[in-house]
């Protein structure tokens, strides 16, 4: 069974306790919506799940899944490269062959354009990040506030791709937006 298992995970930042003895199982093939107030630890939960940070106590196990891809506000793309150069670079790092025209149609972004990503609107940057997410090899997707800067058509594309990806992947979606929860199979409300 492909899944991520939290076993008695505890973590605190200074005196601020974020998780205490958290145990849960996240199965692949599902979309988990992570909700909670600001500072409740949504982003931290994603990082723990992907073993990007280690818990102070307890353990996080990733079973049968490898490679993480993510769309979060912290993970930036190269402002001095064009959309196509950005995508090609990340695909070379970890990916399968990508057809720019096809990908452009999928996320509705023009990859022939020579504008550097630094001149993109936030919504366009977000679409480029999706294109990267869809193009790299990964069994786990971490999505942090992915729809925050998207217009309606962007959201539609995004929800469609999530449903498509959820068949085989494990998707964690941290959000403050109630609309996002419709694509989720299960909801985890923090603090637990």
């Amino acid at each position: 069974m492909k899944k991520i298992v939290f076993e008695n995970v505890s973590l605190n930042f200074g005196r601020h306790e974020i998780f205490k003895n958290l145990s849960c199982e996240l199965d692949a093939g599902k979309v988990f919506g992570i909700i909670g107030k600001n500072g409740a630890g949504k982003s931290t939960f994603l990082k723990l799940a992907a073993q990007i940070i280690k818990p102070a106590a307890g353990e996080v196990k990733i079973l049968g899944l490898k490679n993480v891809a993510a769309v979060t506000p912290e993970l930036k793309i190269y402002d001095d490269l064009t959309a196509a150069e950005n995508l090609n670079f990340f695909v070379k790092l970890r990916g399968k062959a990508v057809n720019l025209a096809e990908m452009g149609a999928r996320v509705d972004l023009d990859f022939q354009n020579n504008t550097r990503a630094g001149d993109f609107s936030t919504g366009m940057k977000q679409r480029l990040k999706f294109a990267i997410l869809l193009s790299v090899d990964a069994d786990i997707w971490l999505l942090d506030e992915p729809t925050a800067n998207l217009d309606d058509s962007g959201r539609e594309i995004f929800y469609r791709e999530i449903r498509r990806g959820a068949v085989e992947k494990l998707i964690l979606l941290a959000t403050n937006d109630a609309a996002d929860l419709e694509v989720c199979d299960e909801i985890i409300k923090l603090p637990i």
């Binding site: 990007i52 993480v68 891809a69 993510a70 912290e74 993970l75 930036k76 793309i77 190269y78 402002d79 990340f90 790092l93 970890r94 790299v136």
Partner: peptide, 16 residues
Amino acid sequence: AAGTLATLKLYAEPQA
């Protein structure tokens, strides 16, 4: 500073 190092670390091996 540009925030791309985190992305790079996510997708590439440290040695690379």
